[in-house]
Design a protein around this nucleic acid. Sequence first.
DNA 1: CAGTGAGCGAGCTTCCGCTTGACTT
Length: 782
Amino acid sequence: MAKNLLIVESPAKAKTIEGYLGKDFTVKSSYGHIRDLIKSEDAIDINNNFSQKYEVPADKKQVVSELKKLAKEADFVWLASDEDREGEAISWHLYDTLSLKEVNTRRIVFHEITKPAILRAIENPRKIDYNLVNAQQARRVLDRLVGFELSPVLWKKVKPSLSAGRVQSVAVRLIVDREREINKFQSEAAYKITAIFDKGKNSFKADLAERFSKQEDAEKFLQDCIKAIFEIRSLETKPAKRSPAAPFTTSTLQQEASRKLGFSVSRTMTVAQKLYEAGNITYMRTDSVNLSDTAIDAARAEIVTAYGDKYYQKRTYKTKSAGAQEAHEAIRPTYFDKHTIEGDSSEKRLYELIWKRAIASQMSEAQFEKTVAKISISTRKEELTANGEVMKFDGFLKVYLESADDDDEDDNNSLDNDNAILPPLSKGQLLDLQEMTAVQRFSRPPARYTEASLVKKLEELGIGRPSTYAPTISTIQNRGYVVKEEREGKQRAYEVLTLSNSNITRETKTETTGAERGKLSPTDIGAVVNDFLVQYFNGIVDFHFTANVEKEFDEIAQGLKDWTEMIRTFYAPFHKDVESTIQTADKATGERELGVHPENGKKVSVRIGRYGPFVQVGESNTDNENEEKPLYASLRTGQSIETITLEEALELFKLPKAVGEFEGKVMKVAIGRFGPYISHNGAFVSLPKEIDPLDVTEEQAIELINAKRKKDAEKLIKTFDEDPTVKVLNGRWGPYIEFGKQNVKIPKDKDPASLTFEECKALADAAEKAPKKSGRKFAKKK
DNA sequence: CAGTGAGCGAGCTTCCGCTTGACTT
């Protein structure tokens, strides 16, 4: 039996370290935290210095008992969890739960998984740092108190099962605020002037910094240019340079994989996890941009061999994010000489991205020569500007260029042609105008957040951690606060004036604007919950709340502050707010009056109900028995109680409507949870997007029903005489049986075409009896 | 899933941060 037990957080790390340490060491993993606060409300005793009740969750029992057994047999136990607040707490929980003794327990830390770093750590053991543990307890207790006191307020005042927390509620707030900025935004149009000078390969572009908001001013400008003389008044050339970006952290990896590979934040993490477990990259949940010395050496060797000395530039990076705890290295390839890896295409692509970014981070800067030519116009006081850029040395750009977010590229400034190459020019040179255009451009509203740009923002605010960015984004979507949507763009007309051959022509063109994919927008419930929290708990959803408490956690970690004192100071007023809100606040429904019905003069209003947002026509609580009951209609997907108009709301009452008959049964069009559909004789057919549910014709409906039947028939493998509702079908994941409301997968060793009814029944019964594994948390209510 | 919205009340929901699989009609 090994004399030493060393415990780290991650099993992949354990494997690597075991290789470095030889047979005197058994290296095991705790799989993260092994204990947590008990689930019930009495986990924290408010009246007894916030003392906590912990338990080992069911899925950690096995890990703990194995570690306990090994710890008993070992001479020394080395606690090697990460060197940050959470890691220190993990060590303490291990110490406590495994009943370790101080004499044979060692706490060690390292920031990189390299042999020298591990050996150095083993030579420098220390004791558990209880200040750091206390800081973690403060963090844990604060989050529990906030989450478990705020959420029930929402259950009472908004809707059951909702949630609020220090991190998620701010994430939702960012998205709600952004949506309102967009709704409020008034687009302004202005004419942008661009000129093309000279011919053939000498031709180049120049533009005007000023824009004209009135068409007649733009036209006047072009008019003035017909007879003008264009002369280069000044010519300035200066060197410019560009430096590589730091190697990836979790957040920057998520952003770049989203922009360059189109990965969602959670997909990036799943793929990165595979790369990590296969030993191809370092740990993927990190806030550090630091590379180990061995990594820098390996990168240098790689760069010098592949590109030569002058491409190498040793660089060290400093983190910019406020809350960084830097327990790990930056994300980098384990071996820089491994250019490609085994794996599926997403693993290969993500690895390539990581490899390039890490390599580029140790390369020399790219050098440019920037030229700015100012061109005077004899008939006007304004000047045109031509920008040119020539790359003198590519440097790091040989391997990697960081891309920018949508909202970074700004077509409102006049520098969007600064990558162009200018022909040889000289001061005083006269230019020959080929063409000049005045194009109507519109100012753009702020961009909606993508998952990745939300992560970026949260990181800037110091909210959330590398391990929680992806889960937080899932949470706010699962709670129904936020949706990720595709938005179709709208057509917009714009004017183009062209001056060519001393002649000005005018043309109206159209462009698509506002088309978006994968952007986050708030739901009505998200907005109502947000407004409620902002009104009654502004301190908690304040963007700086986390940053402020983090400062206090740091003081606790340094031993300068008592953690119970900090929590007490926070909790007293917070709890008072909770109590008074429960007492005084009205139920939040987001109710908004749209006006009165044009025909019967009844009040039309929208609000959130048990089943989501809806319109109501007429008063609900009438004292008069004789008065008619109000009418209700649900809003459609994409509509919001905040922006819906009276006209749109009244449209909703036109459905469901009968569109005709088919095979002696009525066909009805209605809007369901998944969009507009036709119902006919107990069957349902979704309407394609391009058909407006309000003007579906009888012919269209019949056609759609027949198309659906045909498609279903293609999926069908067989049916049975015993029970025609039981079907064997070909699905997206292979063949399955539809047995009543149950879908049962057919095992690979069975041929779907030759299944008998009895076999199907047996498979369905077996699936029914099989214990429902709780992978998903969407427990269906009866 | 497939057009619901009264009011009452039992019993449920909920946080953030460490980890990895199990899961997907």
